[in-house]
Write a protein that binds this DNA or RNA. Sequence first.
DNA 1: GTAGGATCCCTGGCGAAAAC
DNA 2: GTTTTCGCCAGGGATCCTAC
Length: 666
Amino acid sequence: MKTGKIATSKFQNFGLRRDWLIFFLCNIEDWISKTNLGNRQVESLKTWLRESELLEGDKPTVVAKILSKILTKDELFVWKVVWTNLYYNVNLIKWYLDTFDWGSTFSRKDLLLKLLEDDESAKERTAKNAISSLLNLLDSSPIGYELKIGVVKKIGGERYVKKIGTDNLHPLAVAYSLYKAAEHMERRDFTVSELYSKEFQGGPYKLFGIPREKLERILRGLDEDRGYILNYSRGNIYLREDLSPLDILKFKLYRNTLKVREDYLPGLLLNLLYKYVEVEKSSSVVSSEEYIIELLKDTIDALKEIKAEKNRLRSKYCRIDKILNCRQKESLKNFLSSVINRDVELTIIDGNLDKHLIRKKIEKAFKKDYTIHLCLFFGRNEKNIIKIKNLLKELSNEDDFKNVVFVLSEVVLDDETFEKFIQYKAIATVADKHNYNKESKINKEYAEKIIDSWINRVKFGYVQWFLQDESDKELMHHLSKKINEELSRKIFTYGLENIKELQKNRNVWTHRRSIRSVEIFLFANSIEDIEKKTVNYPYRYLREILKDNNGEYIVDVNLKIKENTPEDHPLKKMYLEIKRTLEKEKNKGTFNLGDTLEFLTKPPYGTYSNMIYMGAIGFIMREYTAKLFEAETGMPIQRGLMRDKILDLFKYWEKGDHREKLEVFY
DNA sequence: GTAGGATCCCTGGCGAAAAC
DNA sequence: GTTTTCGCCAGGGATCCTAC
C-alpha cells in the first residue's frame, strides 16, 4: 500500500455503490461502453475497482472474473472480498478500521476532526471529500447496511456512523482474509489472540468485527473440512504453504457449483443432526442401534413434512406477484420510477395468468389519471416470454389500455430460483411448526435473499416495453429515463412535459399545493412582472410554461398568447380547450367549474396539483377574472376569489372536496 | 526533454431536505 | 412559504507518470 496520506479526493466524493459494482460485475468486459454514469462517476468507479483489485489499468482481473460468477449465488461474499482488498490498498479504509473500535458511534464531524489530526498534511476540503466518499460507501453498499461495518444514520442534521460488525461470515471469507493477511505479513501461522490485537494487519476481526467464539467455531469447521483450507488447533492457525488468496476464491467458485446438491439437503434435517451429535459428544452415551433408528425416523419424518409443505407452497406461490413482498415490490417501483417526474403507479403481473384475469387486474390497478401507469410482467421461461410478448402487443393496441406502459422483463423467474425459494420457505414453515424459531428465521431470510438476488438480475437485465403501436427493447435501468423523456409525452400529448426545460427540475413536479405559483401567473400584469417574481429557484423554472422548445416566449408583453403559436403547444392547447368548453356554458345558467374542466386531469393533459400545473391554470384563468360569478353569493369572481377557486379546483379533482364552492355562472 | 494521458485536488453550482 | 444547509456532481487546473 502507498504510505502517507489518508485524506484523498481520488474517489471524487463518491463511494463504491452497490449498483455500480453489480453493473461492473455483470458487464466486466464492456462496462465502460455500456455505462450511463457521468465522467466523474466513471473516474471514481475505476479508482474503487482498481483499489479493490478488480481492475488493472482498464482490464478486469482474474479476481473480477471469479467474483462475477459468484455474484448471483452469494453477493455478500463478493462484498467481503472487496472490503478485504480495500483494507490493504486504501489508506482511508485502513485508517477507519484501525482507528475506531467496534461498537462505537461517531459523527461525520468526529471522523473529519480525527482525520485532520491523524493526517496533518491534509487540507480540510480534501479531508471532507475523503469522509464523504467513506460515508457514501457505507451508506450505499451492503458493507454498511448489511455487514454493518458502518451503519449510517441521520440524527438531527448530522450523519452518524455506528461500527457494529457482523458474525455472518462465510468460512471462506474468513479464510480469504487470513490468506490476505499472510500475504502482507509474510508468515503463515497466527494465533487467534493476535487476530484480536489492535496491531494485527487485517484478519476477520479487524475487517468485520466477528466475535471470538464465532470465529473459533468457523476455524474448527475449516480444520474439520479435511484440512483443505487450513489447520486449526488450540488457538493456533496454520495456513497452507501452497494456497494463495486467489485459490480461496477458486475454491468458493467450485463450492458454488456443488451448492445445488447441498441445497437439497434440508437445512432442518442438518440442524436436527447437529443437535443430536452435540448431545452425543457431550455425553458418554454410546450410539445404540435403536438410537440410530429413532434418529433416522425423526429425520425421515422431517423430510416427508418438508416435501408435503413444498407441494403446498408451490401452489400458494404460483404467481410472481405473490412471491414478492411489499419491500421488494417497492424496490422495483422505485427503480423503475427513479427519474420520472410524474408520479408512477405500478402493478406487477404474472404473465401466465389468463387473458381475462390480466385485463381485470389492469382495470383495477390504477387509481389516478395523471400518473404513469406501468404494468410489469414476468415469465417463467423463454417459450413463456414469446407468448406474453404477443399478448402485450395485443393489449397495448386496445383502446382501453392505450395509456398503459407494458413492460416485460426478459429475465425470467427460472425453475432453479423458484425451487430454492420454495425449499427455504418450506423449511422455515416446518421449523416454525416445531418451534425451531432460529432456523425458521434464517430460512425465511434465505428465501427473501434468493428473490432479492433475482430482482437484482432483473434490474440489470433487458426489458421489452409496449405502448400503443410502439415497442422496443431497453436495459431496465435505462427505462425510467426513456419513460420520462419519451413515453410520458406519448401518453400526455398536451402535458407540460412536452416543454423540455420544465423536465429539468423535479421539485416543480412534486405533488403539492403552491398558492404562490397560482398568484405569480394570475396576478401578473406583464411578462417583466412574471420574470421579476421568478428570479429565484425553484420558481425560475415556472416561466418556462410560457416558452416554446426554442426558449422563445409564446406570449406578448401583455401576456396574450401570440397568434403564431402552434396549437399543439401544451399551454395554448389547454387554453383553447378550456375556452371552447366554457363557451358552451354561456347562457346556460349555473354550472360546476370542477366537473366542466375535469377533462384536464386525464390524458392527454394530465393536470395535477404541483407548481407548474397550478401556475399554468393560474395563467389561463386570468381570462375569466370578473367574467364569472359565484353561484352562492352572486359576486363577480375577481383576482383574489379566482385564486381561491383555482385552489378549490385542485382540491376537488384530488379528493372530491369543495364541489359546492365551484358552482359558477357567466 | 516533451507531449499527452492519467490522476489528484479544489471550487462551485444545483437540487433536495431541513430548519425557520 | 422561504431560507439555509448539506450532499451530489461536474469542471477544470495542477501534478504525476509514461512512452517516445
